[in-house]
Design a protein around this nucleic acid. Structure first.
Lengths: 309, 309
DNA sequence: GCGTTTCCATCGAAAAAAATGATGATTGCC
DNA sequence: GGCAATCATCATTTTTTTCGATGGAAACGC
């Protein structure tokens, strides 16, 4: 009897749905069916009454719901208890935008579970991150990129990362409904540094459509870019999370530009051969569980990211 | 994380030995090693300090020992709780000797876990048992036989069943050290009925060695056989368990006769296709767990008899 | 009412995990 | 120093799990 069956059971009960539970857990629906059937066999009872559309716990199911919660509680507690005693270093690399707007609360939560782990976070450009992960200098990398496929590297997609084109509030393109690529002709771009994948993709896209543009500045610092944009020195392509506050305060506006080629993903990268100790696994779990993954190309994310138990 | 790992862990801790734990659990030693290693990986700690010969729990191991006990306790309780609510019939067949001397306490324990199961036990001769199990009239058969191999039937060996040749206390052969088959020449045998496998094997053995003998009576009843033997009407081959009391009270003595061809096993037989509901599984567990299995041909017994979890 | 969609179950194939048996290394024992 | 016992490791086989595709049944929308 595997503990994951119990977790699946609880999730099915919570969602009142095999399908939803499967999605949340990163399984295919038939797998969840199979898992529940295992439980049902093991106990020799039916756990869910399957009506046409909806399901309901049987009385045995309710009794066991309780049991499973208790068991998993104890188990999870024991994991935490042991984890708290873990010592060591955990070195990760990530890009500035994630470092600044996404990761801090997660790191905070991580350190609550692993107070004695020395977590070192290096802000780097993506190429450096991938290289350091590959040669083992970093335990983990967190980047924004197209889905990474690599012989040495394993990538776990966390979520699609919306990128937005921002401009100062009075920008002429801001009032249109939808911007065609051609309309970007002649614009001044404030860009992140060379080597930034989404900058590269954006420039490539413009180039393919014969759109000419001016690079205004190349900044490593997002803060600087936002400042320049808000002063009207140009427009910039940045992760949505990086400008949420500025948008809310109307110091910046998004330009209604979308294009499938600029569909990027926040992803965790680690060496395929690397043994993931509980600290690393926990961090990955934190990263993956936070966001509902509504990702385009299959639910690669959660399926790859099932650790533990 | 599978609950069986926790059980293995506890057993290893209890036995202070991987090897012994493996034997008790019906695993091979390397499997237990692998299971403990899984736990160790999962928690990222070493659970046992391996000294040269002996092992000892680490501090993390001790903490988890507690945890696992609690989890398994809850789990087992939940199994029992659900089991108590099980209703239905469970029809088994067995031979008289087992029915009289071995099974009653087990049935008693079984009914404590499954009070609402209607357990019906039919005393039959072995051939009838096998046939009824084959055609589905019986859920389970418990017999004494050579290891059964059958296309339709699954056999689970519980233990080797010592058979002894008994005689009245003053019997002349009783004083010898070791009886050769030839010495049985001319003896009067009190036998169980036709169709009894160990009787058949015994007679075959005598026949092969050209030993002539007299059948004195054919009884279905062990009680009658024992009476006849104690009155000196002949000798009899019976399961040791059936005459323990008589031997203790010195109303009978065993004759020092052993022969490899009369190595019999108490075994559970069920149809291969049959789905074993929790009640049946529990009964099988009770039957298998009671005895330390010190069985000659591999540990078929426990290996076949691992149900649940 | 009738197609459509939404669910869960089933099935075969592929992938992953577990168990085994043989072997090796280490330690303690005589 | 050889022997026996014990746990680890490895390759292989067996079993289990997962996936993906399909099917059927019930609700939904028009």
């Amino acid at each position: 009897m595997d503990l994951i069956y119990m977790r699946s059971f609880l999730e099915v009960a919570r969602c009142q749905s095999f399908t939803k539970a499967a999605e949340n857990l990163g399984y295919v629906q038939s797998s969840v069916t199979a898992q529940i059937q295992k439980l049902e066999n093991e106990y020799g009872v039916v756990l869910f009454e399957r009506y046409g559309r909806s399901i309901r716990l049987t009385s045995a199911g309710e009794q066991l719901h309780d049991t499973f919660e208790r068991i998993l509680q104890i188990y999870d507690d024991s994991k935490r208890l042991i984890a708290r005693q873990a010592k060591g270093n955990l070195e990760i690399g990530t890009i500035e935008s994630l470092m600044a707007f996404y990761l801090p609360p997660l790191f905070h939560r991580f350190l609550q579970s692993f107070p004695d782990i020395n977590l070192q976070v290096n802000p780097l450009v993506e190429a450096a991150i991938l290289q350091s992960v590959r040669n083992g200098h970093l335990d983990l990398g967190i980047v924004i990129d197209l889905p990474i496929t690599d012989n040495d590297l394993e990538s776990i997609i966390i979520r699609q990362e919306p990128l937005v084109l921002v401009a100062k509030p009075e920008h002429p393109l801001g009032s249109t409904d939808r911007i065609d690529i051609a309309e970007l002709e002649g614009q001044f771009l404030i860009t992140t540094e060379q080597g930034c994948t989404y900058r590269a993709a954006f420039e490539r896209l413009l180039g393919q459509h014969g759109v000419t543009y001016h690079i205004h500045h190349e900044f490593g610092s997002l803060e600087a870019i936002k400042q320049c944009v808000s002063y009207g020195l140009g427009i910039a392509l940045v992760p949505h999370i990086a400008v949420i506050r500025e948008l809310a305060e109307q110091r910046l506006v998004t330009l209604p530009f979308v294009h499938p080629d600029i569909t990027f993903y926040t992803q965790i990268v680690h060496h395929k051969k690397k043994w993931l100790n509980p600290a690393i696994r926990h961090l990955i779990e934190l990263l993956t569980e936070t966001d509902d993954v509504a990702v385009a190309p299959g639910s690669v994310a959660l399926q790859t990211a099932r650790y533990g138990q």
